[in-house]
Computed example of a mutant assay.
Amino acid sequence: MGLCSWLVLGGIAGWLASIIKGTNARMGMFANIIAGIVGAMVGGWVFSFFGGRGVTGFNVYSLLVATVGAVILLSVLQALRK
């Protein structure tokens, strides 16, 4: 995937994760993109650990992997803040 694809996929995944976790009002566009990209790495690792595939390109499966990873990331960050 190219840089633009990572930014778009990361932005969408981070935005969806922030809506799921209820942090959308506090996060801006750049925080969503970073959360989505790091979430794609976390999600890829988690899915690979359980026998699945990580991010495979710009598709719905990769969006799911990145969103799950971003939700995990935001959950850990929320737990550390408390």
Rank of each mutant, 00 (worst) to 15 (best):
residue 32 N to W: 02
residue 20 I to E: 09
residue 63 L to S: 13
residue 63 L to H: 11
residue 37 I to A: 02
residue 45 W to Y: 14
residue 47 F to L: 11
residue 69 G to L: 09
residue 66 A to W: 02
residue 7 L to E: 00
residue 59 N to C: 14
residue 49 F to D: 01
residue 35 A to S: 15
residue 61 Y to S: 10
residue 32 N to K: 08
residue 42 V to A: 06
residue 38 V to F: 06
residue 30 F to S: 12
residue 46 V to R: 08
residue 80 L to Q: 11
residue 60 V to F: 15
residue 75 S to L: 11
residue 30 F to I: 14
residue 37 I to D: 01
residue 67 T to Y: 05
residue 44 G to N: 05
residue 37 I to V: 15
residue 75 S to N: 12
residue 72 I to G: 06
residue 20 I to Q: 11
residue 53 R to C: 08
residue 44 G to M: 07
residue 67 T to N: 07
residue 58 F to N: 09
residue 35 A to F: 09
residue 43 G to S: 09
residue 16 L to F: 10
residue 38 V to T: 12
residue 35 A to K: 04
residue 12 I to D: 02
residue 20 I to L: 14
residue 16 L to G: 08
residue 71 V to Q: 00
residue 31 A to G: 14
residue 65 V to S: 01
residue 80 L to G: 08
residue 78 Q to L: 13
residue 50 F to N: 02
residue 53 R to W: 08
residue 15 W to F: 13
residue 20 I to P: 04
residue 31 A to H: 10
residue 74 L to H: 02
residue 4 C to M: 09
residue 71 V to D: 00
residue 34 I to G: 12
residue 39 G to Q: 10
residue 42 V to L: 14
residue 40 A to Q: 06
residue 5 S to V: 03
residue 23 T to H: 12
residue 61 Y to I: 07
residue 47 F to K: 14
residue 40 A to K: 02
residue 43 G to W: 00
residue 66 A to Y: 01
residue 49 F to W: 13
residue 9 L to D: 00
residue 82 K to C: 04
residue 42 V to D: 04
residue 48 S to H: 08
residue 37 I to K: 00
residue 71 V to E: 00
residue 21 K to F: 07
